[in-house]
Write a protein that binds this DNA or RNA. Structure first.
Length: 426
RNA sequence: GGAGGGUUGGCAGAGCGGUCGAAUGCGGCGGACUUGAAAUCCGUUGGCCCGCAAGGGCCCGGGGGUUCGAAUCCCUCACCCUCCGCCA
């Protein structure tokens, strides 16, 4: 969430900055809420002060064995109690409303984020690699996978419905190899610590990284329990530092985590229904960084570079896009999307999203560090896919396919495939 | 599943219903001593909210209750630990 002090001190300024991302901040509502809060809070605290003073006097009277005096004071205290109870309830209700109001405000976009309301307004930063020109008609990953007896959507549908996949044989192994490879690169070359975390988190943790109220429908919930299947390892990994005050020297923390991700895709009916571009379950290697506030934009560039390194090693053409103000996610201050080339679609498709959340998530999670002055201060959090495993498999099947239906294994993955250079139908 | 114990400040750990936001130790910070460091000694050291300030309020796992007054009593939920049973 954004700093409520900032709202109090510069409400119109915040509203203007939020307007850049298409969010209308109800300034009048906030003012009304704040005014009411102020008067009720002050009144409540005055009553509390009097109650405390009275209670103290009762103690003193009793110590002096002045029972008559004590009885008088206790009667006064009892009278005061009734009013206090009402005030406290009113105060609590108002604080809750204010809290709710502030918690559903999205993050303020960083000044470097291009202004725009549609995906087309996002700005391409760079491209790497040349899309391959085929001397035959390339198939999409569904057909390549079927030809290899490796991807089976019909059977998956029998088990769990649409938007699932069954992988077999060499394709399943390739999928596993991709994840291993990514994890190894990030831990051995980019300074990340591998972590294994729960695939379910509490509602509070979900609310720590984004707005649960807003995104509840996108999550799978465990029936009858306050547990949600993670839609990305970000949910569990970022929360590793919730309610912590980290020593300065522990920063930065860099975590890499391979996990399955579960998404209900409630709002995506009819979109990307073919293949495994948008499934209810997919694997991803996630990168998370917990950093000093002064270093987060530097870290953001590095983290994006770490994700890009994977595509370079796999020799898959991609481009990097800075999402425009209207397209960044709820908690994000700035996001780079990395898009990989898919021959079947003749288009670049998202394979990674790298965001700097500044203190937005940290404030929700109460994730802090002890700064140079010894004071507790909120950390900055970042994450990025490094990369989505399923979509990487899709990209390899499509970009590395051969006319005979086989697929060439990218050089970087061969050590994970017993040196095998290509996958063909068994 | 059954029985019991526990959750207190950065950490460890005390705390008869009244002056406890909380002893003590460690750690941190400042200082003395030292060429420097260690050791020792002295001082200091939680978070949050309102307020220009003075000052006030809240926080002892979460929530509720009893009371003039709750870290201390009661209820409830969560988590942790120990033992028994069961299971992988």
């Amino acid at each position: 969430m954004i700093d409520i002090q900032l709202l109090r001190s510069n409400l119109d300024g915040v509203a203007a900055q939020l307007a850049r991302r298409g969010y209308h901040l109800d300034v009048a509502a906030f003012k009304a809420l704040e005014d009411a809060r102020k008067s009720i809070q002050t009144a409540t605290e005055q009553l509390q002060s009097r109650r405390n003073a009275l209670a103290k006097q009762v103690g003193q009277a009793k110590a002096k064995k002045d029972e008559a005096q004590a009885a008088t004071l206790m009667r006064q205290g009892a009278e005061l109690g009734e009013r206090l109870k009402q005030m406290e309830a009113e105060n609590a209700a108002l604080q809750a409303r204010l809290h709710e109001f502030v918690w559903q405000i999205p993050n303020i976009p960083h000044e470097s984020v291009p202004l725009g309301s549609r995906p087309e307004d996002s700005v391409e930063q760079r491209r790497w690699g040349e899309p391959r020109s085929f001397d035959f008609q390339p198939k999409d990953h569904v057909d390549v996978g079927a030809g290899l007896d490796g991807l089976d959507f019909d059977t998956a549908a029998k088990l769990a419905g649409s938007r699932f996949v069954v992988m077999r044989g060499q394709v399943a192994r390739l999928h596993r190899a991709i994840a291993q490879f990514m994890l190894d690169v990030h831990t051995s070359q980019h300074g990340y610590t591998e972590v294994y975390t729960p695939y379910m988190v509490s509602g509070a943790c979900a609310d720590g990284v984004t707005s649960l109220a807003k995104f509840r429908d996108d999550l799978f919930k465990v029936e009858g329990r306050d547990l949600y299947l993670i839609p990305t390892a970000e949910y569990s990994v970022t929360n590793l530092v919730r309610d912590e005050i980290l020593p300065l020297e522990r920063l930065p923390l860099r975590y890499a985590c391979h996990s399955p991700c579960f998404r209900s895709e409630a709002g995506a009916a009819g979109k990307d229904t073919r293949g495994m571009i948008r499934n209810h379950q997919f694997d991803k290697v996630e990168l998370v960084q917990i950093v000093h506030p002064a270093k987060s934009y530097e870290a953001h560039e590095q983290l994006t570079g770490h994700a890009e390194a994977i595509l370079r090693k796999l020799e898959l053409p991609y481009r990097v896009v800075t999402l425009c103000t209207g397209d960044i996610g709820f908690p994000s201050a700035k996001t780079y999307d990395i898009e990989v080339w898919l021959p079947s679609q003749k288009a670049y498709r998202e394979i990674s999203s790298c965001s700097n959340f500044e203190a937005f998530q940290a404030r929700r999670m109460q994730a802090r560090f002890r700064n140079e002055k010894g004071k507790a201060e909120l950390v900055h959090t970042l994450n990025g896919s490094g990369l989505a495993v399923g979509r990487t498999l899709v990209a390899i099947l499509e970009n590395c396919q051969n006319a005979d239906g086989s697929v060439t294994v990218p050089g970087a993955l061969r050590e994970y495939m017993s040196g095998q250079e290509r996958i063909a139908r068994a």
